[in-house]
Amino acid sequence: MTDADVIVTKDIIKTYEDGGVPVQAVRGIDFTLTKGEFTAIIGPSGSGKTTFLNVITGLDTPSSGEVWLSGKLLTSMSGNELSDFRRDHIGFIFQAYNLFPVLTVEENVEYVMLLQGTPKEERHEKVMDILGKVGLADYAGRLPSRLSGGQQQRVAVARAMVSKPSLVIADEPTANLDSKTSGALLDMMRSLNEETGMTFLFSTHDEIVMKRAKKLVVIRDGKLDGSGSIEG
């Protein structure tokens, strides 16, 4: 493991009980993600992408194996340590319903910094800066319900990136968007990746995401089924 490694997993296995029957969703994955990558995990439904993402972000615990994130062994952390670690090191973008509906755009974006105890002035400054980058500076006071799906996802991107985490996890970020909006969102994320050097890891079925990813990782039947870098 080197300083450039953001995620390292060693022989991750995750077994679920489904109606009393054990189901092995992840079957021994060794995986490394290095700093600045813009990588998409692809694979058919039920291949284990979601379970793998849950495990490497500490949202779920592996049945066996190790997960190292930014040099820390995730699998040995307590509940509060995991919460704090996610807060400080991981930005999340989910496929839908990302935002807290009762908070305004600005409040949604600053939420993680609020958890971190960032002073109000600094929060406001950073929020307005990132909202400017995603083109939503004029929408700071709006509730998510008054934004389009694409705008909501841009707010989610802003929230995921505002505290400059070492890793941004985006799970099917374009699942509920049309192709034009999806393309624009991915272009924006890629330029932010290039601008900030932040690491992005996607889970997707979407060709638009695959085309813009710098590297693709294939998961099939709970195992890595190859990976490769893409020029462009």
């Binding site: 919460s83 807060r87 929230r159």
Partner: peptide, 16 residues
């Protein structure tokens, strides 16, 4: 449930 899941995912402690 989903909202609480997101809250936990982004780092909200169980006590909060």
């Amino acid at each position: 449930m989903y909202e609480f899941g997101v809250m936990k995912a982004v780092g909200t402690r169980p006590s909060a």
